[in-house]
């Protein structure tokens, strides 16, 4: 730590310590940001994510053609000036649908990450902080949940709710995706609650809510953010997979997964119908994972000098 004497005035008593300037105020977050921005792969990821976000927002107000409109041009029409990515099996504009699909992908990814993080953080905090029977129950739930295939849970959920609206798809994926977050937060909480500063907070009369929100959660935030970042591509992929199976967002919603599914039957005839959304999906997943990795390295305390 940089400590340089700010003045050389001699002070005999204990106040002398404070005549020394403390180091420059560098918050832990700033430090992490500096490391993140020096990682080019993560920056590439971030750039793609920002681009995707812009496209998704734009698609809500404008697309070259309506995403649902059929017969705009020739069925399976190849790329042209009017339709840069061509047309699909019912003559819809693929670029428009791709843009609409970005919004769906991001909504599913962010929505699921948010919702499953909330569930996972809440249960993880409770289990790790209160231990005892609370922990036993939550850990049991997690372990049993792990044993049930995600697909089965989602299918049952969709059948019971009897709706394939996007918000229900998000809920369905979230109730399968919170397990890792809960485990992570439980482990972090178990470790943090034994730390001396938490003990100190208890000794100054901090209530449990304060201990959890001011002392434990902020110190677990680094790993939580990283975990949440990984949840986004996983959810996007899962939604694509569900749509591919016909369980995702209902037609004519332009989900990337559904677009792949619709096109792959005619793969030999018109490969672009499948390849364009597949490529978009791949780039998005790579970008999100790259950003997640960069974030993990930036926030990992072991990387901190």
């Amino acid at each position: 730590m940089a400590t340089a004497p700010s003045d050389y005035v001699f002070q005999d008593e204990f106040t002398a310590d404070s005549t020394y300037e403390v180091g420059e105020a560098v918050s832990l977050w700033k430090d992490a940001w500096r490391r993140l921005t020096s990682n080019y792969f993560a920056l590439f990821g971030l750039a793609v994510i920002v681009l995707l976000l812009l496209v998704a927002i734009v698609s809500q107000f404008w697309t070259p053609y309506p995403t649902w409109k059929q017969g705009i041009g020739p069925t399976y029409g190849g790329p042209s000036a009017a339709h840069p990515f061509g047309l699909d099996q019912v003559g819809r504009d693929i670029l428009s649908r791709l843009m609409g699909g970005a919004a769906i992908a991001l909504a599913v990814g962010l929505g699921t990450a948010l919702l499953s993080s909330v569930i996972g953080i809440a249960l993880g905090l409770l289990a790790g902080f209160y231990r005892g029977w609370v922990d036993t129950m939550i850990s049991l739930l997690i372990n049993v949940w792990y044993g049930i295939p995600d697909l089965l849970v989602v299918m049952l959920f969709v059948v019971i709710i009897n709706s394939r609206e996007l918000k229900w798809i998000i809920v369905a994926i979230s109730i399968t995706a919170w397990l890792n977050m809960a485990r992570l937060v439980r482990g972090q909480t178990l470790a943090l609650r034994e730390r001396e500063f938490v003990e100190a907070a208890r000794s100054i009369g901090t209530r449990d809510v304060g201990l959890l929100t001011r002392h434990i959660l902020p110190n677990a935030l680094g790993p939580i953010i990283v975990q949440a970042t990984y949840l986004i591509p996983a959810a996007i992929l899962f939604e694509a997979f569900l749509s591919f199976l016909g369980l995702g967002a209902p037609p004519p919603e332009p989900s990337w997964g559904a677009m792949c599914a619709e096109g792959y039957k005619s793969l030999q005839l018109a490969a672009h119908v499948t390849l364009v959304p597949a490529f978009a999906l791949a780039i998005t997943l790579i970008a999100l994972n790259a950003f997640g990795d960069g974030l993990r390295d930036a926030l990992d305390p072991r990387m901190r000098r």
Partner: peptide
């Protein structure tokens, strides 16, 4: 007896005698 101040920051030591900021 207290020795005021802190041991010097070795990447930026004081000029002259290294102990002078703390020397009475």
């Amino acid at each position: 007896l207290t020795i005021s101040g802190l041991p010097p920051d070795m990447s930026n030591p004081p000029p002259g005698c290294k102990f002078h900021p703390r020397c009475r």
